[in-house]
Amino acid sequence: MNLLHNQAIPVEHDGAVVDVVADIRPAGPDVVLLLHGLSATKESFADITASPALAHLTTCAIDLPGHGRTAPLPSGAHTLEAYAELVVRVVARLAPIRLHVVGHSLGGAVGLIAAQGAKNLVSYTSVEGNLVAEDAGLVSRQIADLELEDFAVNEFHRFVDSLKAAPEADLRAWGEWTATCSPTAVHESARSLVEWSDSGKLVDWYRAMPNTAYLYGSLGDRAEHLVPLLDESTTFAIPDSGHFPMVDNPRALYSALAAIIGH
């Protein structure tokens, strides 16, 4: 199955057209929509195409505005609400018979907001997604606490360089993705992510939704502060992985995802 790179999906936002860039692997009428995390890109889900158990599903990984190959929004802030609105419009263009939403970190929160009221949604899977205040970790809070100019002029490039120089493969990958992002989009979305994580709304919405699943890295801290708040029958630990299981253990991640949505 060929992966179609950099397909622009034009959608309307605030009176302008935004070209949301996507990697689409066409298959059946059911669509798996993949939403990346803070200062990441659609490439974070590249290994999903190697999962035979998901080969019968169309996959669509998008770059949110200001991330990767999708340009920043022409007007308005890069908030989770704005991203969710665009996701809803992208889904309308894709017109799936059955929709599966999968979001990592920030993308998990965006997907959850977008999923409210969705009529064709079959499943929602959060991968290390933000649901409670503790999920907005040190990085997002440090970015949010900075003034935009200071972050854009000074700290953004230091952040990228520190990630690229890290000994861990997942952090180095994150650095490569972050380098393609708009500092303004990263800063504004980090602030929005902290606000939403602190609001208490996300975990309530998650617990009220049917057909949800939460996948988390076994080496991270989600098992301590978040999993006890969820129905443990819907939570799955991805072995030998931290916050980026799609880098640390993609085979196990997509095997778990296939068990959830691959029917």
Rank of each mutant, 00 (worst) to 15 (best):
E155Q: 09
R158D: 10
H243Y: 02
L163P: 01
I24W: 08
H36D: 06
A84R: 07
A71V: 12
G137Q: 03
V102H: 01
A46T: 09
P96I: 08
D170C: 12
H104W: 07
D23T: 10
G175I: 01
E232D: 14
E149D: 14
A50N: 14
V87L: 07
F236R: 11
A92Y: 12
H5S: 13
G200A: 09
A61V: 03
S189W: 00
L257P: 00
R25Q: 10
L94F: 09
T178H: 00
K164Y: 03
H78K: 14
T59C: 10
I143P: 00
A173N: 09
E128K: 06
P167A: 05
L34I: 07
V127D: 00
E128W: 00
E149Y: 02
W205N: 12
A152C: 07
V32R: 03
S199D: 11
A95R: 14
L112Y: 01
N154S: 14
M209C: 11
A115M: 01
E81T: 15
A53K: 11
K119W: 07
A61R: 03
T58G: 06
S105Q: 08
P52Q: 10
I238A: 00
A22F: 02
R207N: 15
A46C: 08
T184L: 11
T184V: 13
L193A: 08
D47K: 15
N2S: 14
T180V: 12
A179S: 11
T59Y: 03
M246S: 06
L193F: 00
T178R: 05
T41G: 07
T234V: 12
V139M: 09
A40C: 13
A40Q: 12
P29H: 08
S197N: 06
Y206V: 06
L229F: 05
S197H: 03
D135E: 07
S75N: 15
V203L: 05
L54I: 03
D150P: 05
S218N: 13
L4K: 13
V91T: 09
E195Q: 15
A223F: 02
A136I: 04
A16L: 12
H13M: 05
A55I: 08
S75R: 15
S233F: 10
A92T: 15
L64T: 04
H157C: 08
L35P: 01
S233M: 12
L35K: 05
L4P: 04
M209I: 10
A77I: 13
L80I: 13
A8Y: 07
G217Y: 01
V17G: 05
M246P: 01
T180H: 12
S218Q: 15
S199N: 13
A185M: 04
S255Q: 14
I9H: 01
G37Y: 00
P74F: 14
I97R: 15
F156H: 01
R69K: 15
A256C: 11
L148W: 08
D198K: 08
S233L: 12
S197M: 04
E134S: 11
A237T: 04
A109Y: 00
R222S: 09
L34R: 03
S189N: 07
L73A: 11
V101Q: 05
H225P: 06
E195Y: 03
P74K: 15
